[in-house]
Design a binder for these strands. Structure first.
Lengths: 339, 339
DNA sequence: TACACCGGGACGTTTTGAGTCCATCGTAGA
DNA sequence: TCTACGATGGACTCAAAACGTCCCGGTGTA
């Protein structure tokens, strides 16, 4: 059943919304037994007119009966309602996760896709696809988009396609070298995005593991400074979320640093900042680029991360509370919400 | 899967059409590999504009790619197409039956519902529901509707609901007493329909098994004549189809008559007329009301009958060739088409 | 008997959908 | 290298559907 619904959602995305709406109408009528049009409209938060159109339709379908004293169910309607229940559970399952996440962390929009990135690579693709869609909808003409690195965001880049609005965008890495492998570096991701969309991109070349002195010298470079300025003016930020321990090790942090991170309770990581379970920043990678306070000025901050193993990490970053849009998967959503 | 689709069809009837259309677009693009908008529109019998809207949508969904040299598939689109195939077979199965029946017998509209009336009484309800819908759509203000008897048409009456157009209608039995049980008599059906819709009805009281003399006397009765005149002016005729042998026996025909019918090759029966396998009328019940030639003047003739056991009978009546709309079920459709 | 609430009809406004035409761009072929 | 063709994408117009809103006649109930 899930397969059918997923396929349909691709070819007719609002099928779910319409069916849900009509199901709710039937459900309410069932609860009231007999109810007037206006009462029903108020209780469903609809205007009278649209409810009326829906009721007329359901009457045509023989599911509702409309008499002079009100609206009530037909036997066929009752039967349909019974048969729909398992399907609706299935259909609204993800919607419920989305709503709960939205409420708990105060995020503007949450998108949850089926499955678990830990278990199937297809889910990560889907994650990328939905994030790419969200990005496309967020972007306006000539927007600066700052992106982090990581395999998930790389997948977002892969799923991007050109669109009129995106063509004028400028893609930049959110922060300088964070010790990722080349393929998943923020620089690479930004350039792939620019290529896929027909937009522009700027690179930020900051080698890893630089001595303090060389580092300060580099910062004085005019073209570095210029790029950093562009980055910090980003109106849209797209970033992944990593597990603090995994990220620290991958970046070849010293054992002392890893130890320190763990003692500080670091759980999640996003563009070089480490967060603890309360969403407090406990550490950060020594590099240049987007600063945490710049997020306040950004129009939209889009987090993309999935997989049940990342649940706690995602939650820690969400608690910091700067996200506008979260794209995640069922596995992570379950994990996040069960604590 | 079938269950999900059936439920959806009740809450969103044109979901099938839209999905089919979009699937076809993908399919064509796949076949062409790369194709221009106009070429594609012509090949799909669409106007350029609507195709364009669809292509834009499919592009947004990441299923098609639009470049300056034409339209082509994305990997995601190919994948979707593969996964859709079994679903489309399922979805278009009934549609194919409908089309084949339409072609073979030259009927204006054919509706085939899932299942087999012989096996499940639910299918007969569904048959009634679809026929009621077709009737509602056919009727205009103050239409005379002539109906036959039988359990199927009785079900149609049960499924009717009031609508503005139907309120002005006049329901009449197509022909006088045909020896059905009271519940399923045409008179009863007409009165139920009138009650359900808020319309009017006229009765035609002609007792069964009347002697020739009494019969002729009855015909002279002014009010009988008046009702007959109304009947013969019917603009819409709704009738069932029976198996000749079964009907003859149910009506307590003499063994000689049954024998004669069989020898004449009677297969199907509709409102008192018996048809052989070539659609030729071989016999008729001795009563008054609608005559066969009146069907020519009727605007719409709606036949409702299902069940694989009735397949041959239905085919024999269809061959006579007076139907505008046929409502049947999967079981009967298969049987009819396999000969 | 009076009142409150019901469905249905009507009307003006707004939004969406569809038909048509044209500008621009890229590619292929001469 | 230039030209011509066919591609997309944008713009404009008109029609139709959707919607918000108000009112009317009827009906059940207090």
């Amino acid at each position: 059943m899930k397969a059918v619904l997923d396929l349909q959602k691709q070819l007719l995305p609002d099928v779910l919304d319409i069916i849900k709406k009509r199901y709710q109408i039937l459900h309410h009528v069932m609860a009231y037994r007999v109810v007037g049009r206006r009462t029903l409209a108020a209780s469903l938060h609809m205007t009278e007119r649209v409810l009326r159109a829906e009721v007329d339709f359901l009457k045509e379908q023989g599911l509702l009966e409309v008499e002079s004293f009100g609206i009530k169910m037909t036997p066929a309607g009752k039967k349909l309602l019974d048969e729909m229940e398992p399907m609706m559970k299935e259909m609204t399952g993800l919607a419920r996760y989305e709503e709960q996440l939205r409420q708990r962390f105060g995020i503007g929009q949450v998108i949850v896709v089926h499955g678990d990135s830990d278990e199937s690579s297809y889910v990560k693709q889907e994650l990328g696809r939905m994030a790419a869609l969200a990005l496309r909808k967020s972007v306006q003409k000539e927007t600066v988009v700052a992106v982090s690195g990581g395999s998930t965001i790389y997948e977002v880049a892969q799923q991007l396609a050109s669109s009129t609005a995106l063509k004028g965008s400028i893609f930049v890495p959110a922060r300088g070298g964070l010790g990722e492998s080349v393929e998943y570096q923020a620089n690479t991701v930004a350039s792939v995005m620019a290529k896929k969309t027909g937009g522009q991109h700027r690179m930020l070349h900051v080698p890893d593991h630089l001595g303090e002195e060389a580092y300060q010298t580099l910062l004085q470079e005019p073209n570095i400074q210029e790029v950093v300025q562009v980055i910090r003016s980003a109106r849209i930020v797209v970033h992944g979320i990593g597990e603090a321990k995994v990220m620290a090790k991958r970046r070849k942090a010293s054992p002392e640093l890893v130890q320190a991170l763990l003692e500080e309770g670091a759980l999640g990581e996003a563009f070089g900042y480490y967060f603890d379970r309360n969403g407090v920043v406990v550490n950060r990678m020594p590099t240049v680029g987007l600063k945490l306070e710049d997020l306040q000025n950004a129009e939209k901050v889009i987090a993309v991360a999935g997989g049940s193993s990342k649940g706690e990490s995602i939650a820690s970053v969400l608690r910091y509370g700067c996200e506008s849009i979260l794209v995640t998967d069922e596995g992570a959503a379950k994990k996040i919400l069960q604590d």
